[in-house]
Amino acid sequence: MTWKPAKKLFALATALMLVATAAACGDDDDTATDETTTSEATEPAFEAGTTMARIAEEGSITVGIKFDQPGFGLTNPTTGEQDGFDVEIAKLIVAAIGEDVDIDFVESISANREPFIEDGTVDMVVATYTINDTRKQRIDFAGPYFVARQDIMVMADDDSIASVEDLNGKNVCTVTGSTSATNVAAAAPDANITLLGTYSECAEGMGDGRFEAVTTDNTILAGLIQASEGAYKLVEAPFSDEPYGIGVKKDDDAFRDFINDRLEEIFESGEWADAFAATLGAIGLDTPEPPEVDRYTETPPAPTTTAAP
């Protein structure tokens, strides 16, 4: 019973192979595509060897996000899952690889992001990750998918700070392993900068009177201000652009192009704006225009490096 159909199938396969060999002289690709499309008609096909193909094959992807950043990636204490804009962006990108690809979110603190990408702990990082030339030496960025601006947070009753220059001579807190410290040191060289581990520690220290100001991206400050219930306020004197990119392995151009294409797709379709409104919108930020994707081709030279003060 089982033998006969098998024999028929074998004959059919042999016939197909003959046809294929005949056709192969003309076009190699056609037969290859035929085979994949018949077996997995629903999955978009990716060129073999690309990161997308591997992820689609494995059915899972590991994404580095922040677990402690309100609005971007924050662990929800009741569900234990992470929510935020970075999480939504990651989901929208992965959906284009395959609807049923599982996303494994891994906490990537600021200082861990490049090592995690380099050693393959994560496939991509969507973690309030500012695109800059120093980082481009080691990894590559898709995006930006958002442009934050560095701003200043002070106590609600403090009117002595109106711009970044006013930070000179003041005690200012920001976190280790971020670009915020470098930016504020350049804009206010006489500021007395303290670097702690997390932004919530900085906020706590400001509440305790150790610091007069906390500086970092306005989006992060918005979350802290909302959590403070009126104790802190935003100065609204932004002094730098922080384009947030998606970190991928250096020279994985196929994956980077794929993410860039997908970002433009969701900018266009309105899914990006919906994700923004549902996450950052909820902590009081207006939905901006989507940014322009930067498809840089050359790795810029490393900036001259000196120690951050």
Partner: peptide, 22 residues
């Protein structure tokens, strides 16, 4: 270093961020 005392480890962390060569 967790409370921002600028000891060896704290300085090293800064340097590693500034140069991206940990």
């Amino acid at each position: 270093a967790v409370i921002a005392v600028s000891d060896l480890l704290y300085e090293i962390d800064q340097l590693s961020t500034a140069t991206a060569q940990p």
